[in-house]
Design a protein around this nucleic acid. Structure first.
Length: 576
RNA sequence: CGGGAUGUAGCGCAGCUUGGCUAGCGCGCAGCGUUCGGGUCGCUGAGGUCGUGGGUUCAAAUCCCUCCAUCCCGACCA
């Protein structure tokens, strides 16, 4: 509830040269944020208003679940990180520094260590649990490449919760509560989102969901099934190979070696032989110490290393000719002309499921400048393991219901994770169970990016003129625009209306600047205020004000009292 | 870390190739007038370590080197 001239809002017409996505550009232009250094931003007054509103939505929803708020320091001593063994694992992403006594600290990118160190002093019994503690805090990550403004910043605000339970059932309950909580938050923000199964990496056994807000400029890719609601992170999405036309060749032909000088890529091979990429078997050699594995993938797909690692249960490394010269020589590996036929027998062959129906394929001949055509599985080579080792492509099917899978890009704004006893064991956070046994506490962690939400919302809700805030987080609900403040009648009327609305406790800004009406309209749209209340001649002459809605440009002329009633009711009658 | 690019007024940019008067333009800002329902129009004006440091030269925004910062693509991370 402010007057424009007494507040601090600075807008610009020009697109800032730094920004390349709409949310960042509008946040800068409308005066929500100001860049201080790469990935580091000031939240200007209206930016802070929006940030606090997002915070409060999250806080409300968290409190509803019974979670309890606290605030931990951003500065954390290295001891705790050494205890959890992450001090050495974390790498340069962790902002580290020393105090005057040469003790090491870091700026917290997350707070598992800190919270564990706190609760282990208080939680001694199963009776002390379950408990879910959260904070809304500044986090620090020295990102390799900060980008997209506050979408991937080095200093950002996050809500992170940590649950402590004595048994799996309680952990499941809290996990589900958090799942619902995040869904509710995103609904309140009018966002389109998917909760997808996320990659848990090699740690295994854990359970994790990412909340992805759909956005063209998102850095994450998801796969979903419109039929059965299956949704997963692209990295770990399961799928059934789509039915590719195998009718182009019905009968199995004889294998043939052909001369393919300098043809080392799928692309050049498709051109050279005039075939589709899926007819080619892409062979990649992975290495674990001295063991080698060949993974066969159809030429139209990409190797999913994480899936292979999960399948085999250990980390692997993709080899190349230069770094692995000796190995390549020893095993007669010709990268560019690799294939399963005649491959060194010590190399285990893993084949992607999507190859299983294929006949008369093309592979490298393990000889420089030669390929085989009409290669057939079983007849020409044996497969040690079949499995899903690739990323799905357009045309692949849902593994649950056989419907066509769809692909979307999005922004990860929330992540919930069952941590298990990873931290409690390392950091000695133990409790006595009913039977008097000492056990590590079961933990879960649940993060949602507050500042990131601000950007993500805009990525979904904007037009050529600027931001279209949902009502729940708009900095103001109403912008009172006096068409001409030099006209004393208009000015005093607008001011009266402002005071009236202010008294009703409706969030409003009165644009009392002595500038042309067009400037105020443009700024209002850029800033994204849901309702304009326009006071002009029509009010002086006919007692009519005009309301204009940001989201659909609807304009209506109303008597003042009607207009005020309309505004009062607007949030209850509109989701957004 | 690899590749690419940029740095000139608060913001957006030109000038640099081919060194040479007092470094320009648009927006914004200040003043005056004009206009007043979708970024009016006119006049006047303020505002610059040309990213930093060094070098070449009679002379450097311009050429060379160093460093710094910023952005994009990739890799990394998950």
């Amino acid at each position: 509830m402010v007057k424009f001239t007494e507040f601090f809002i600075n807008t610009t017409k020009e697109h800032p040269s730094d920004s390349d996505i709409p949310s960042y550009s509008f946040l800068l232009r409308a005066g929500y944020i100001k860049k201080i250094a790469s990935g580091i931003y000031t939240y200007l007054p209206i930016g802070l208003i929006v940030l606090k509103k997002i915070e409060n939505i999250v806080r409300e929803e968290m409190n509803k679940t019974g979670a309890v708020e606290l605030l931990m320091p951003a500065i954390q001593p290295s001891d705790l990180w050494i205890e959890s063994e992450r001090w050495f694992q974390y790498g340069p992403e962790l902002f580290r520094f020393k105090d005057r006594n040469n003790r090491e600290f870091c700026l917290g990118p997350t707070h598992e260590e800190l919270i564990t160190s706190i609760i282990r002093q208080y939680i001694k019994s199963y009776k002390d649990m379950p408990i879910n503690l959260y904070q809304i805090q500044v986090k620090f990550r020295d990102e390799i490449r900060p980008r997209y403004g506050i979408l991937r910043a080095r200093e950002f605000i996050m809500k992170d919760a940590y649950s402590f339970t004595s048994n799996e059932e309680d952990l499941d309950k809290i996990y589900l509560k958090m799942f619902d909580c995040y869904s509710n938050v995103l609904k309140k923000l009018s966002l389109n989102f998917f909760a997808v199964e996320a990659d848990t990496g090699l740690i295994g056994g854990n359970y994790s969901h990412e909340f992805i807000v759909i956005a063209k400029n998102g850095e994450d890719k998801i796969v979903y099934c419109p039929n059965c609601n299956y949704a997963a992170n692209y990295q770990m999405a399961e799928y059934k190979p789509g039915i590719i036309t195998i009718t182009d060749q019905k009968s199995i032909k004889n294998i043939e070696e052909i001369f393919t000088p300098g043809i080392t890529t799928i692309k050049s091979l498709t051109k050279f032989l005039k075939i589709k990429p899926y007819k080619i078997i892409k062979t990649m050699i992975l290495k674990k110490e001295d063991d080698l594995f060949a993974v066969l993938i159809p030429g139209d797909k990409d190797l999913n290393l994480a899936k292979v690692e999960k399948f085999l249960g250990f980390k692997l490394e993709l080899i190349n000719q230069i770094d692995n010269f000796e190995v390549c020589n020893a095993f007669n590996i010709n990268i560019g002309f690799l294939g399963p036929v005649g491959l060194n027998k010590k190399i285990k062959i893993l084949a992607d499921n999507s190859l299983s129906n294929q006949i008369n394929l093309v592979t490298g001949a393990n000889k420089k400048d030669y390929h085989y055509i009409n290669v057939n599985i079983y007849r020409d080579f044996a497969v040690d393991h079949w499995g899903d080792f690739s990323f799905p492509v357009e045309g692949d099917l849902c593994s649950k219901c056989n419907n066509l899978l769809k692909f979307e890009k999005g922004i990860e704004i929330g992540h919930i994770f069952k941590l298990g006893t990873r931290y409690s064991e390392k950091m000695n956070a133990l409790f006595l169970d009913k039977t008097g046994n000492l056990k590590p506490i079961l933990m879960g962690c649940y993060g949602i990016g507050i500042s990131r939400i601000m950007s993500a919302v805009i990525e979904q809700l904007y037009d050529e003129n600027g931001i279209i805030w949902p009502l729940s987080i708009a900095p103001f609900l109403v912008n009172i625009i006096a068409i001409n403040v030099e006209d004393p009648k208009i000015e005093s009327s607008a001011n009266e209306i402002y005071l009236k609305i202010k008294k009703l406790n409706i969030s409003t800004i009165y644009d009392n600047r002595n500038v042309r009406a067009g400037v105020k309209f443009k700024d209002s749209d850029l800033i994204g205020i849901p309702i304009k209340l326009i006071v002009g001649k029509n009010y002086i002459e006919n007692n009519l004000v005009e309301l204009e809605l940001r989201k659909n440009k609807t304009k209506i002329q109303l008597k003042l009292e009607e207009a005020i009633n309309f505004i009062k009711d607007y949030p209850t009658k509109n989701d957004f």
